[in-house]
């Protein structure tokens, strides 16, 4: 579904991550893991085509290299803060890609957008503005907007970061149901261990010092079997001194 080969990413000419090779399979919930500053979000920004890789290739099935100039978009993206447009209501935010990329009449667009909002549990908030809802609700609205055009892949940047445990768990359930009921491939960036163990099937773990991938596979297996002290520390929440 998504294949990265010999990928080097970064800003300017300095690679933050290099020699990255990985594949995301259809229907997977795939996580890009790592501590703060390892380049998880940077890698995601390159995967979705916001930035050109310094070297290497990214291939997305049915699209080739990600190209945001060629609409309509083949994937949905939820940014860390939700990135909702402050001057629009939630319904208008979710309607926007439908207005721009479909021939649906306005009332049909409203119906589809409202269904997306209901799916993420915001069915009664359609006329609220982003400033009137909580952080967790903004993230859910961001997911609703990302799902607007029924993409086959959805990218989520730190979906449960900063949320209370109950909201984070609800979001995890939503991601699981997106995969099971909508068949969406999910690529997410996170370092929230409870979410990782609950929803992620395969992952790569990035490391700041080696600028690359130090582990890959099922996060539960990595937690239980990896002998690499860096992997052990990450999955057991241990600092270097522990």
């Amino acid at each position: 579904m998504i294949r990265a080969q010999g990928l080097a990413v970064g800003y300017g000419h300095t690679p933050l991550l290099q020699d990255l090779d990985f594949e995301v399979e259809r229907g997977d919930i795939f996580a890009i893991l790592g501590g703060s500053g390892t380049g998880k979000s940077t890698l995601m920004m390159h995967l979705i085509g916001l930035y050109e890789p310094l070297s290497g290739t990214i291939h997305i099935d049915g699209m080739g290299a990600p190209d945001l100039e060629q609409g309509p978009p083949r994937f949905g993206v939820m940014f860390q803060s939700g990135a909702l447009f402050g001057s629009m209501t939630l319904l208008e935010n979710v309607s926007l890609p439908l207005q721009k990329w479909t021939e649906l009449p306005p009332d049909a667009i409203d119906a589809v957008a409202l269904a997306r909002l209901r799916l993420v549990g915001l069915g009664t908030f359609e006329n609220h503005y982003p400033s009137e809802i909580s952080g967790g609700m903004k993230k859910r609205a961001g997911i609703a907007r990302a799902l607007a055009l029924d993409p086959s892949i959805i990218f989520l940047d730190e979906p449960s970061a900063g949320l209370d445990p109950v909201s984070a768990d609800e979001l995890d359930e939503l991601i699981l149901s997106m995969r099971e009921n909508l068949g969406v491939t999910v690529v997410l960036v996170t370092h929230e261990l409870p979410s990782i163990f609950k929803i992620v099937r395969r992952c790569i773990l990035l490391d700041r010092e080696t600028h690359g991938i130090i582990a890959r596979g099922d996060p539960r297996e990595l937690r239980d079997t990896s002998n690499d002290p860096r992997v052990h520390r990450f999955f057991h929440r241990e600092g270097k001194a522990s």
């Binding site: 920004m45 609409g71 940014f79 909702l84």
Partner: peptide
Amino acid sequence: GTMRVSEEVDALRTMSLD
């Protein structure tokens, strides 16, 4: 500027909107 730093401009680009 606020839209830029709060990733709203990036969100537009991911919807293939210039």
